[in-house]
């Protein structure tokens, strides 16, 4: 890697970690001006920075406000770089349908998972909050998703998660998707009980889980 390129990638990552939107934009513009590959700059610059931010979140150095500011810097840089990505450079992305289950409108956790998945290279369709089980199933089928990600903060709405799995079973398409669950009242035990493929304790963990499940799928295929 040329020195200029390496320096710019490092600066992109630092801009994300430092929550500096302006610097992310300016550095991304420098990448474009230097005719450096935009896709590589996203991967090795912005995404690397976001991964570091995720580590800091895991280590309780960063909390939700910081993580959101990092992701703002990341998206600002992406907006500059995206138009310059060469089509042949783009790898096929894994697709995720995400949402908060019906009855619940708390979506801070879901939004964090969405951001972390997106910045880790997943293509995320966000249904929003208070979403009936059938819509997860329909959307997953429509976009040919790899993963269905379900979130809730309320014990009273946990049943809706099991309902998604039941509907997938009833329609005979359970094996087409990995179902992952998370949120305050959710545990690994609950995930096992309803027949989900995995449980993540926080947003960083959700990325690891999604990667693990889709990697396993690639091997199986």
């Amino acid at each position: 890697m040329s020195e200029v390129k390496e320096k710019l990638f490092k600066e992109l990552a630092a801009a994300v970690v430092d929550m500096d939107e302006d610097k992310a934009v300016a550095t991304a513009e420098a990448v474009v001006a230097a005719k450096i590959d935009a896709y590589e700059a996203i991967e090795k610059g912005l995404s690397a920075g976001m991964e570091r931010a995720g580590e800091l979140f895991d280590e309780e150095e960063y909390f939700i406000p910081e993580l959101l500011m990092c992701s703002d810097a990341m998206y600002a840089g992406m907006d500059v770089l995206k138009p310059h990505i060469r089509q042949d450079a783009v790898a096929e992305k894994r697709r995720v349908v995400i949402g908060v289950i019906e009855g619940d409108t708390h979506d801070i956790g879901k939004n964090l998972v969405k951001i972390m998945l997106e910045t880790s290279g997943f293509d995320v369709t966000d249904l929003g909050r208070d979403i009936p089980p059938a819509r997860f199933v329909d959307t997953a089928r429509e976009i040919d998703a790899d993963i269905i990600a379900l979130s809730t903060l309320m014990t009273t709405t946990m049943d809706g998660m099991g309902e998604v799995v039941r509907q997938l079973n009833a329609e005979g398409i359970r094996d087409s998707f990995k179902v992952i669950v998370g949120g305050g009242p959710i545990s690994q035990g609950f995930a096992d009980r309803i027949g989900a493929d995995g449980y993540a304790v926080n947003a960083a963990d959700a990325v690891r889980l999604a990667r693990r499940l889709t990697a396993a799928e690639a091997v199986a295929a």
């Binding site: 929550m19 939700i64 406000p65 959101l68 500011m69 703002d72 979506d107 801070i108 939004n111």
Partner: peptide
């Protein structure tokens, strides 16, 4: 909006 609110605690 809670996500915006959390950001703006810093911004």
């Amino acid at each position: 909006d809670p996500m915006q609110f959390l950001r703006e605690l810093r911004k």
